[in-house]
Design a protein around this nucleic acid. Structure first.
Lengths: 182, 182, 182, 182
DNA sequence: TATGAATGAGTCTTCATTCAT
DNA sequence: AATGAATGAAGACTCATTCAT
């Protein structure tokens, strides 16, 4: 709830995405707090991971809402989505990297959001804006991959933070757009 | 019964890409051998990771060579590269996921290969085949991300194994190609 | 509950002198702490052995100092030395039993102390108090052996704790003393 | 029974006395045979230790017999005993160092031999040849200690192999003898 | 809230032992 | 008889977690 808590989770997501075996000690240090405090925020490592997933899901859902992806032009919707996703990249990267947990509610929640995104690409295909020789499911998966790549590229300085949003959006849109040449 | 070293590494790569926190026990089981035998092949967990990196590097280098990326049409070169990369996807995915080690020689080796790939995109930009509003470095990073996403999508059944190569190549090419519309 | 580092080392020395193959678990139990705590005190088994050697060396040096062995009558000096050594018997026994490590500084430290003790017997020979048909080096070695035997004899109840000091000193002095009969 | 077997045991005794944690591999190497062969000679590590104890006991018993310690002058008997013990020093050193096993028969066997040696010193005390202010048990224990010290001193070159017997005997005899001065 | 001690649980690593060559 | 592969069992080591300060 508190602002602190979210900051801790951001730090944890960033670290864990890079180094999944990081110890609670390292996570605490990365978040600038002590082990004991980390333990007071989260009952244990499992609870921390759970919270990370839940926050990631919540943020992703919020981004989908804010981008209002069910409305209008699909390419524009994708641009809005990437724009709203930008600050949540570390969290999403963790979500798509942590390819193992996802149980019960979390899994259901993820499926719901993933279905919304897949639906966006399907709508694009129906509207003739998205190529039909790529499945919508793959387009969604590709978006996750590109967001992760973008976050990582920013992290290690290969692209400027301000460029990330455009780079991801442009490559994705170019890749999925139905063009005259095809 | 003797399981080849490379087979063990494949199994380890596949598992670790999905579950970076997998224990030596799980890795051994995934490779169909006992923990002790795993330890006979690799001195310890660190040595295993190192071997994984080295094999991944070697395979990636071999793919770049086999695709002969320095020659001819860049889009065709990319298609050949993705084709030759296909079977090494789990290994490469591990390489780009394991964002933490990479020291000394391994790091230098990676830089060399990455420079070759980045060079390919640069050549495409000079030849007018690749858009110039995306940096070559980002294009390379995007390829890694899409390969990982493809491997993962195949793994969890979202796309057919036989489609993976085409899906990755098409999306990437469409995304980076300089088109008339732009 | 906090058990002092030195107490742990005492317990370890006592146990290891008797049972050199004792596991860390047994050592921890003997010291009244858990294995994990033992590991917090000493980085590993090697570090424990090292610490044991260092403490033994320090105690032996302190005993030599306290006994003021460079002064006066040699037989009296030996008696004082045995007296001051008494409480450190397990530690010294370990030092002379653990005939395998002794590297670098530890080895140098031991040589220095051993030289002091050997020097004491040499002085005795020069003063006519110690027989010259036994080498000083052997006399020193014999002292180590007798101290270990004494510690062991006390441990298994063959001699009374209060008698140990006298038994060792008397036998040693009788053995090395230049007598009228010889 | 075979000569080989005894040679292996000698090598093992020498090594284990110095380094009780030596692995079967190291023992095999020290004996100049392969692991497999070592395993063919002895069912396992425990069996090896048992064999070591039994051989040591047998040799010690043989030495007591050969020295005919129940007869005549006690100091002379001790000299004969040390002389006969000389070549078995490593074995005896192992026996007195391995202060932990000794179960069942082995223990009983040891007690019997130890009693014989203790009896020798008692006889000396009765005959007025051995001081009575040292217990016979301690004298026996001291002999073990001095034999071990002697073997070790020879091993690391502090005393000449040919001097060992005399050094041990002289120091011991001087130490236990009832002298005019006392 | 931070720090340090302490430990149970679980992972990593080694070793004795067996078997096939 | 020796060597190398393979593994169960056992020991070494680490970490998440708790508690006291």
């Amino acid at each position: 709830m508190s602002v602190d808590r979210d900051q801790v989770l951001r730090a944890a997501a960033t670290l864990l995405t890079r180094k999944a075996t990081a110890s609670m000690d390292e996570i605490a240090k990365a978040a600038g707090i002590s082990r004991a405090t980390l333990h007071r925020h989260f009952a244990g490592r499992d609870a921390l991971i759970r919270a990370l997933e839940e926050l990631g899901l919540a943020r992703f859902g919020a981004a989908l809402d804010a981008a209002d992806i069910e409305q209008g032009d699909v390419p524009q919707a994708l641009r809005r989505l990437v724009a709203h996703t930008r600050d949540e990249a570390p969290l999403l990267a963790f979500l798509t990297t942590e390819n193992q947990l996802f149980e019960g509610e979390v899994n259901a929640g993820w499926d719901r959001l993933d279905a919304r995104l897949t639906g966006l690409f399907q709508r694009g295909q129906e509207r003739g804006e998205v190529r039909v020789d790529l499945t919508a499911a793959w387009c969604a998966e590709a978006l996750y991959g590109l967001l992760g790549a973008g976050a990582w590229a920013v992290h290690n300085g290969r692209i400027a933070p301000n460029d990330m949003e455009r780079m991801v959006a442009e490559l994705l849109l170019g890749g999925v757009r139905r063009s005259m040449e095809q």
